[in-house]
Design a protein around this nucleic acid. Structure first.
Lengths: 331, 331
DNA sequence: CTGAAAGCGCTAACAA
DNA sequence: TTGTTAGCGCTTTCAG
């Protein structure tokens, strides 16, 4: 193996200084045209590829960003990640992707790693940032953008208006005099405690219905087919459910079928993320629609701006949502 | 913001040389106990965190590996990625994850990026490595392991025996005198051309049935709900199908229902990856079972060995598979 | 427009 | 057991 060719070798072969080669590589305009071409030719002939690690050390920019994802196998977050990845690649950033499992220790380890690797920025997805995460970010002054994620720190973020979306979905059912259950992973997560549940209650209040906390169900992030939560929902007397996770909604639908429920006649469902999973249902599942890919893409775009110290007008961006009625709702 | 504390600051404060600090950080045994403790205390007091980029440049090891995935939103690959990520974290590696979309240009760009970032190794998932990829890998001598992926280059890999698994599934149907279709993404990909289709033909031959190429269907990686392929399959006269992708199998199942097919009475299905998606079916989908997570995990483990120049006995590892009969097969 | 030279923060001989 | 000293490969003033 011919040992790696460095900028030094290029400089030598082209009879210029390393500085000039560096300028050529970085498209610095003040290099004479002929010089540039000569250098470019040598670069090509020698098959020179700059060492990004060395560049990173010298320039203090790694063109790498960290992405923290709660669960790679969750269709919603996976779609966000694809949006992030596409835009990152477009702007020539690489992504260090880590699966947090929403686990505290793991998250702490991840953030330390990311910072050690000198990432230029971080996109965080998830529902429970650790204190350590927040402290460390603050100190390090690393740019962070939340995607499909809220916190109570005014961190830049890209989302839909969960409160209003949940409100709308609840209202849809309430107009039909349904008794509506709200199914969330964990009622204490900010996204639920501060957005979805308040949105649900907003609608209740508008319709003069008393809030019943027994109609809030938590499935604690479990995709388990055998969770008892599905039975509980059907036995609660609810006639409709808004579910914060497509996988859960599908499992709920199937369980209803097994229990002999007619959906949407006996029971209606609106899911929240409109991933492909909603299409796996029989009937297909009605859902709040989110521009999932775009949320990731916009988050990444914002992050590039922050990293370049460009002005960003809106720190907290809300993209449009809607509700699509498929087979699990009556209209 | 207090400017970053470096190894130099630590050395100063602890009245030792940088080398000693470095030794402490790297757990070099030949540091006197008291010295070590003093340094450790300073490290803690100063809240020193080593700069991995500088370490990478000096040591020529980045403790970062590249992972190429065809589609983050595909449940099978996402599960592999989780296995990879877990073991990587266990061994203190970070993962640069890139979505290739099985796109040639994108793959080429990704591999160049990864190499520029000086990753210590690469895990490749996908079905069509580009020539550029293979050339560049060879030159760079970067360790590569394939996960859930085959090639024709004898690259280290972790898989199940796709040929035998497909053979078994086909045989299961043939024993029932079914006319069996084989549904793959692309018949030319090595995994299909050299494993699944031969496995299918093996079983045919054993049962003295003539191969009919019209029973091989390609869905070209599309998850599309509206693909015409489903109709074609049902209209082909086949009474059973082996499908290489759980998402496709589910869509096929649902389409059958819409066409009024009774499954498994009129038509049977065996899927290939046993991801959670098989559980979304009504009935749940019978499937070849693969230790998906383990394939990723083992691939990562092998990669650590290769990167450490440890001996690896088996270059190509085959994990156990089985067939689980759920609701889409008759037994 | 180009070059010299000083780092970036760390590791790894080599000495002591 | 510890310190000295070269680098690792690149960017970036500062001169010219």
């Amino acid at each position: 193996m011919q040992s790696k060719v460095t900028i030094y070798d290029v400089a030598n072969a082209a009879h210029v200084s390393m500085a000039t080669v560096s300028r050529v590589m970085n498209n610095n305009p003040k290099v004479k045209k002929e010089t540039k071409e000569r250098v470019l030719k040598v670069i090509h002939d020698l098959n020179y590829h700059p060492n990004a690690v060395a560049q990173g050390l010298a320039s203090k920019k790694t063109t790498t960003i960290g992405v923290i994802i709660p669960d790679l196998t969750n269709s919603y977050f996976a779609n966000l990640a694809v949006g992030i990845d596409d835009i990152a690649m477009m702007y020539n950033y690489n992504i260090i992707l880590s699966n947090s499992n929403e686990d505290t220790e793991k998250q702490n380890k991840i953030i330390d790693n990311l910072l050690a690797k000198q990432v230029d920025g971080i996109i965080y997805m998830g529902r429970n940032q650790t204190e350590h995460f927040q402290n460390v970010i603050k100190e390090s002054e690393t740019a962070v953008v939340l995607a499909g994620t809220v916190d109570n720190q005014n961190t830049p973020s890209v989302n839909i208006n969960y409160r209003k979306a949940t409100h709308d979905a609840t209202n849809f059912f309430l107009k039909q005099k349904q008794k509506v259950a709200l199914v969330v992973d964990n009622a204490n997560f900010p996204i639920n405690a501060e957005y979805r549940i308040p949105g649900y209650r907003d609608a209740l209040k508008e319709n003069d219905i008393k809030f019943d906390k027994n109609l809030i169900f938590e499935n604690h992030n479990s995709d388990s087919v055998n969770s008892s939560i599905y039975n509980n929902i059907y036995e609660s007397g609810a006639t409709a459910a808004i579910v914060d996770n497509d996988e859960t909604a599908l499992l709920l639908l199937n369980k209803g079928f097994n229990l002999g429920k007619k959906i949407p006649n006996d029971f209606q469902i609106i899911s929240s993320n409109n991933t492909i999973v909603t299409k796996y249902g029989r009937p297909m599942i009605s859902s709040i629609t989110q521009p999932t890919y775009d949320i990731g893409a916009v988050a990444m775009r914002i992050l590039t701006k922050i990293m370049n110290n460009e002005e960003v007008k809106e720190k907290n961006i809300y993209l449009d949502y809607d509700i699509i009625h498929r087979g699990t709702t009556r209209i």
